[in-house]
Amino acid sequence: MATDAALRRLLRLHRTEIAVAVDSAFPLLHALADHDVVPEDKFQETLHLKEKEGCPQAFHALLSWLLTQDSTAILDFWRVLFKDYNLERYGRLQPILDSFPKDVDLSQPRKGRKPPAVPKALVPPPRLPTKRKASEEARAAAPAALTPRGTASPGSQLKAKPPKKPESSAEQQRLPLGNGIQTMSASVQRAVAMSSGDVPGARGAVEGILIQQVFESGGSKKCIQVGGEFYTPSKFEDSGSGKNKARSSSGPKPLVRAKGAQGAAPGGGEARLGQQGSVPAPLALPSDPQLHQKNEDECAVCRDGGELICCDGCPRAFHLACLSPPLREIPSGTWRCSSCLQATVQEVQPRAEEPRPQEPPVETPLPPGLRSAGEEVRGPPGEPLAGMDTTLVYKHLPAPPSAAPLPGLDSSALHPLLCVGPEGQQNLAPGARCGVCGDGTDVLRCTHCAAAFHWRCHFPAGTSRPGTGLRCRSCSGDVTPAPVEGVLAPSPARLAPGPAKDDTASHEPALH
């Protein structure tokens, strides 16, 4: 009773807030009518008042009428009001819900409408889902798969039609296919003929059939049928067999079959498995989609049935006599038709004709302190090069084509190399640097090759510096006499390219 009084008091307290929050009759008014909170006449009256005075006034009048009803109607109103779709449509209802007392429970059932309790003993237990329907569909599909699609060729003596089998029958139906081979029951999904010589313990000319048996419980189990008994694959494991010639990621696949039913060829011909030897223990289905393919039931050349050999690369099948050149017997292992072999060759040939990528240039590290003349020119003028003790990398590039010797140069053309002071002394051009340390401070000019250098860098042994005729380390061993002091540049003949010694390969005349 306390809860009923509290709900009535809360409705009177929030009546105006609810009326202002509800700006549309749908969905709240319609939901109240659906849950029998508002009768039909009051529903029509509220809609009429909404058209006349507006939605807030109409709902305020409806809530005032609701306060005169019993506690069950008020409880049902609060339940409908706080439904998710009403809270989404009328956003101003959320503060009312947040301020609702926590001790007021809106989930209690309506009085007088409590459903009768059902004894637990009368409640049926839930049924577990079964796979009976899938099993029945598999039974119905198996006879259809064994139905012949056409008439065999005159040369083929193997013609068999499976008798119709009602689904209610649980007995196995067997077809006489000759040579002791028996087909599987209607619940078998796949059958492959297997030679009895590969099964340990088999006697006589009995041949087993590799099947997948579907049981009534819905589970499946792969086994071997020899005669009327089934054997699990673990009985046929043979770890010492060295003649297993397995197909790549293979499961067994029928390579020879008669049109209309699988079996042995007439005249004692023995149908073979995809792999010879003992049956392997793992009978998992292969991951290669080509091995799941269903080959055609007629020859791809003459479009006739009979004894066919199936290609492992495509769905086509052929007569042995229709092949070019014809085959006398079934080859062992994987067999592919000429079209598949030709496609494989065409895929391999473009790969062989692809040009080989060019090898990157060989990189040879230079000892610290040495650099090529090109690196000396590329440096920024007026700045010493940083990191001189790091190992430089010199790339061996292809030799350029031989060019004509340089033409003779006048001494005026070499004027930018040297600057003559007032006393006739050779001065260095701006930006000249030593080729060893890279520093341009207090550098000297070689009178023979006009290269800038430090005496301490080229002659670290402490050799005394002569007063005139300074030469760098590369030119100090040259027998050519030094030019007379005061000459602007060496003779043009000295600039012609010539053979250089091994220790002077990195010091070429550089223009500054």
Results as ranks from 00 to 15, higher is better:
E137S: 05
E53L: 12
A5G: 06
Y90P: 02
Y90I: 01
L177G: 00
V104Y: 10
K253E: 05
N244S: 14
S135T: 15
P163W: 15
G227Y: 02
I224A: 04
Q44H: 00
G112V: 08
R127I: 05
A246N: 02
D70T: 04
P163N: 15
R12H: 01
V206M: 04
L273R: 06
G197P: 13
H30L: 02
R110M: 03
E229M: 02
A140G: 11
I224C: 06
D105V: 05
E45D: 03
P252W: 05
L66M: 02
F100W: 15
T68E: 00
G269S: 13
A202V: 11
T147Q: 06
R139V: 09
W78V: 01
A145R: 07
I209N: 06
A33I: 00
D36T: 00
A202D: 06
E137T: 02
K243Y: 00
I18M: 04
S195Y: 04
E270I: 05
S185V: 03
A191R: 13
Q69S: 01
D4I: 02
S71M: 04
V123L: 13
L158H: 09
L87F: 01
E17I: 00
L106M: 02
P254W: 11
K42R: 00
A258M: 04
Q225Y: 00
G204C: 05
Q213C: 03
R149S: 13
A152C: 04
F59P: 02
S195L: 02
G260W: 12
P124N: 07
L11K: 04
Q225S: 10
P56G: 04
P125N: 09
K245C: 10
Q173C: 15
G178P: 05
I96N: 03
D70L: 00
N86C: 03
V188A: 05
Q182E: 15
A73V: 11
A19H: 02
P154I: 15
A145F: 13
P109E: 02
V199T: 04
L75R: 05
G228I: 00
A160T: 04
K245Q: 08
L97C: 02
R139G: 13
L146H: 05
R79L: 02
G228H: 00
G204Q: 08
P176E: 03
K235M: 14
G91K: 00
S168I: 03
Q108I: 00
A145K: 08
L11I: 03
S156G: 09
L67W: 02
S107I: 10
V206F: 07
G208Q: 13
R127C: 08
G178F: 11
C223D: 04
G204D: 05
A170R: 14
E167V: 12
A258V: 14
S107A: 10
A19D: 04
T16E: 15
P125M: 12
K165F: 13
F43M: 07
L63N: 02
D23H: 14
A138E: 11
K52I: 07
G197T: 04
